[in-house]
Amino acid sequence: MNRARPAPELDPDANPASVARSIVLRQLTNSAKSRHQLAQKLAERNIPEDVAEAVLDRFESVKLIDDAEFAHMWVRSRSMHKSLARGALRRELAEKGIAPDLAEQALEQIDDDIEREQGKDLVRRKLRTSIDLSDRAERDKYTRRWVGMLARKGFNPSLAFGMVAEVIDESRQDD
């Protein structure tokens, strides 16, 4: 059974700042992290708050922690590879502790037309030739499914309905 282990206590003989630096460096080696995420890791390892703040401030001053750059990279990656829309990306950035103004700046890099095409491509990938879109009940059923999928990806529901309708119209014209 995979149970979560309690955070190890800080060795009384260890220098808390040294331990904190090691933790942060190890975390940053795996992947980029926001300051908030790193602060959570330090808290889990029982690093005193004042020591954690000092270490994180130092890492920020030498540009090893940069929430603005992290947000830009996160948005670019998740938009491209996961086809997430602004709504989902905004939520993810908030969960990672990114300030709303930094999140909005990062989200500006997403082009409306590209986002719309990504949503339509998601629906096209789900569209199978065995689906009879001329049958109203069948069309409605799949419209609800695809709009739900797009909503989970962060697309505005009214925009999602429009994208699904366009893909259905394209498909019916091809038949």
Results as ranks from 00 to 15, higher is better:
Asp135Gly: 08
Asp13Met: 11
Ser34Asn: 04
Asp50Cys: 04
Arg152Cys: 07
His81Asp: 13
Pro8Cys: 04
Ala68Thr: 06
Asn2Ser: 08
Gly87Asp: 05
Ser79Lys: 03
Ala85Gly: 15
Glu108His: 09
Asp57Arg: 13
Ala103Tyr: 06
Asp67Tyr: 01
Trp146Gly: 03
Gln109Asp: 10
Ile98Gly: 00
Glu166Thr: 12
Ile23Leu: 11
Ser130Trp: 12
Ala99Ser: 14
Leu56Asn: 07
Arg144Cys: 02
Val167Ser: 04
Ala7His: 06
Thr129Asn: 14
Arg21Trp: 02
Val75Tyr: 00
Asp57His: 10
Leu56Arg: 03
Arg58Asp: 13
Met149Pro: 01
Glu115Phe: 06
Thr143Asn: 06
Glu44Ile: 00
Ala85Tyr: 05
Glu53Val: 02
Met73Lys: 10
Lys153Gly: 04
Ile131Ala: 06
Asp121Asn: 15
Glu115Tyr: 08
Gly154Pro: 06
Glu170Phe: 09
Asn46Val: 03
Thr143Leu: 04
Glu53Ser: 05
Ala4Val: 11
Val62Tyr: 15
Asp67Lys: 01
Ala4Gln: 10
Thr143Gln: 05
Leu150Thr: 01
Gln37Ser: 08
Val24Asp: 00
Asn156Glu: 11
Asp113Ser: 11
His81Arg: 08
Ile47Ala: 00
Asp57Phe: 09
Tyr142Leu: 03
Leu56Gln: 02
Gln173Ser: 08
Leu122Asn: 02
Met149Ala: 14
Glu108Gly: 09
Gly119Glu: 03
Val147Gln: 01
Lys41Leu: 09
Ser158Ala: 15
Val75Ala: 02
Ala7Ser: 14
Lys96Tyr: 02
Val167Asp: 05
Ser134Cys: 06
Ile110Glu: 05
Asp50Gly: 01
Ala7Gly: 15
Pro16Gln: 09
Ala52Thr: 01
Pro100Lys: 00
Leu150Gly: 01
Arg90Trp: 05
Glu44Gln: 13
Ala137Leu: 12
Leu127Ala: 07
Gln27Val: 01
Glu49Ser: 13
Arg21Gly: 00
Gly97Leu: 03
Ala106Lys: 01
Ala68Met: 10
Ile168Asn: 05
Arg90Phe: 14
Gly154Phe: 03
Ser22Thr: 08
Gly162Glu: 13
Asp67Ile: 00
Val55Pro: 00
Arg144Ala: 12
Leu89Val: 12
Ser134Gln: 12
Glu44Ala: 07
Ser61Trp: 06
